[in-house]
Amino acid sequence: MTEIKTAEELNKKYLREGMWPTIFCNGCGNGVVLEYTFWALEELGWDMDKVVFVSGIGCSSRLPGYINADGLHTTHGRALAFATGIKAANPDLNVIVFTGDGDCAGIGGNHFIHAARRNIDMTVIMINNFIYGMTGGQLAPTTPFGSIATTAPYGNIEHPFDICNLAKALGANYVARWTVTHPYQPIKSLKRALQKKGFSLVEFLAPCPTAYGRRNKLGDIKKLWKWYEDHTILLEDYERIMSYGSEEEKEAMKDMFPIGVFQDIDKPGFFEEYQKLVARLMGKNNKKTAETEAVIKK
């Protein structure tokens, strides 16, 4: 077993300490997601020179700047496109994408759909705070029905996007949703997602006290973090209630978020298939050249 590190040693190894403290607001969940990622990487014991962090634009997308590893801060919504390029250029690298809900589900929605469909070998960590936090709290595609936002001052009348079920339908290899308030399951889940070949998505429900909690009267930081615990339910329990529960129980599930592992399969990834294709065609070509040479010799 490897040596267990204290937090200070962990920070020395993974943080670009000159950049700290972060610009995140007080009580923001982004830092906690970063901490869980570090513990997952520490458990795996990966070489940090072989890990690349990619991000788009947004609060969560500032995270690669704080990590002592190679990172790419790209244009809004296009993090997955850049990540695909990195993986295509050098398949030895482990690509981790930090992205927000506006970045991944809103502006980069189609990139997300096609990256998941093609099963490209990368780990996407989507931090969902229900709002466009950095630009001042505009309505995001994941904002729950009825919430208040700057661009929806009388309540949101749109229905939110369920990214996990979308990724599941697209056949991503690993899909999970967790909140930042439960520490232990997400670390194990992240470890699994990082090891997985093919597309893996881990969605984090992270509190945004400044742009979301304050406008929706969810209280101070402690109450907001408690709200996340009260409004989430394990996926297994959720499914049991939806199939066998009474009408009242089903009604109570309406504003709950199921958390847990949505999908865990082993489908060959895009680059695996691509290498197989190259090997097959190279074999064919070699055969052809041999035949031609034989004909010429005759």
Binding site: A7, V32, Y36
Partner: peptide, 10 residues
């Protein structure tokens, strides 16, 4: 340590 969003505790 785990819950601190700013990595301030050891």
């Amino acid at each position: 340590e785990l819950v601190c969003p700013d990595f301030a505790i050891t």
